[in-house]
Design a protein around this nucleic acid. Structure first.
Lengths: 148, 148
DNA sequence: ACTTACTCTACAGGGACAATATAGTTTGAA
DNA sequence: TTCAAACTATATTGTCCCTGTAGAGTAAGT
């Protein structure tokens, strides 16, 4: 299960991607149209800003906008920012590897071997699918590379 | 991330699958060899028993053993018992579907569409891989069906 | 009977999640 | 220049779940 926060973040980015670029969008506007608590969304967008995904302008005509093109922001990147590692076991994470204290030798761990496959499959989808892909209902992301 | 409890459960089942069938194995033996807190393991095995995966015998010559053949117990089944739904969003779960309160129409939800693929990929591995597969280091589970 | 092992319920400590509160800063406009 | 709208930042709260422990009870072999 992904966290509510990650779901909000993804929905907010998708919403920003739909707006004409260059013109900032109010937090309050996103919060209303997406049914996200406004103060919570503020934290989320601030977090995304610190990671360079979005930019903001203050003041009355302020708001948020995507800083990078929507087709360069993957679901995996967002999830790692909000929820942390994607791997189902700490000993399978690429960004935050941690040995399992129980489990004598990693190489012969049956559980690890199976979940390594789960991790690969999951990352295959999440790291290949971008916010831009999500907007195009027609093409499944698998076909994107094939067509390009 | 799967829970520690689920990891223990899978390791315990793998350990039971390695034992000669028919002869029960002590909880304390599994607890020691697998580095699992004994009292915690008791709860886990009891839970597995209630779900019909293992059987137990009491008394001095008691212990636990697999009730079903190891190649009929999938990782997915165990995970659903211990951790609940595998789906990354409640609106994608087959066993515990719940609509997302936020999100106006499911059919046009971009986030849902992407995670539906993640769910399929994950289930593809977990529901096809059994405890017996985990024991055979050589054959990746994908090949199992092809060979059979 | 006596020991060993399984059965069951309850509960406690810690940490993560979801959100709210509060205070402050910046900017554009009246 | 004053105001209000909007973003920035940090702190705090309540709830829930995860992990593990405690303890009393039950069954079975010797």
């Amino acid at each position: 299960m992904i966290s509510q926060k990650a779901k909000y973040a993804l929905r907010a980015l998708v919403a920003l991607a739909k707006q004409p670029p260059g013109k900032p969008t109010f937090i309050s506007e996103i919060a209303e149209t997406q049914s996200i608590p406004k103060k919570f969304l503020e934290q989320i967008l601030l977090d995304m800003k610190h990671h360079g995904l979005v930019a903001s302008r203050r003041g009355k005509a302020g708001g948020y906008g995507l800083l990078r093109p929507a087709d360069t922001i993957s679901f995996g990147e967002v999830l790692r920012i909000i929820d942390g590692p994607i791997a189902p076991l700490p000993c399978l994470s690429k960004i935050a590897y941690r040995r399992c204290e129980d489990c004598k030798e990693e190489a012969s761990c049956e559980v690890r071997r199976v979940f390594a496959q789960v991790a690969d499959a999951t990352r295959g989808v999440l790291d290949r699918t971008t916010i831009a892909d999500a907007l195009e209902a027609r093409l499944p992301p698998r076909l994107r590379d094939a067509v390009a």
